[in-house]
């Protein structure tokens, strides 16, 4: 499996990562080197093998539904790049 530059740019869009023209060839080369390596997996016979969902075979975990305080708003505001009137501000979309 080898990804074309178009496919690499498509994956970058899916991943919300801007990829510059100059970064593209190196990224493409490295991804293809790694994908070629993991391709070896296709040779392993795993017909009928159940995929791992949890390493110790746990199915689900429950806890009591206890009401707890939320993180104080000022601690959220402190870390926000742009925060006004209890909202995270982002560029206009409409």
């Amino acid at each position: 499996m080898t990804l074309t530059d178009k496919e690499v740019l498509h994956v970058a869009r899916l991943a919300q990562l801007e990829l510059s023209e100059e970064d593209l060839p190196r990224m493409q080369g490295e991804i293809n080197e790694i994908l070629n390596h993991v391709e070896r997996l296709q040779k392993v016979s795993s017909l009928g093998v159940v995929p791992t969902l949890h390493v110790h075979g746990e199915i689900n975990a429950f806890r009591d539904d206890i009401i707890r305080d939320s993180i104080p708003l000022e601690k959220i505001e402190m870390n926000a790049p742009d925060f006004r009137a209890c909202c995270f501000r982002v560029p206009r979309i409409i």
């Binding site: 993991v38 296709q42 795993s46 093998v49 995929p51 791992t52």
Partner: peptide, 19 residues
């Protein structure tokens, strides 16, 4: 994880992880 490749990569990897 993208459409069309999940079974070939992720599912396969989790099967071999079981092995």
């Amino acid at each position: 994880l993208s459409a069309g490749y999940y079974d070939a990569y992720y599912r396969k990897a989790q099967e071999v992880r079981t092995l």
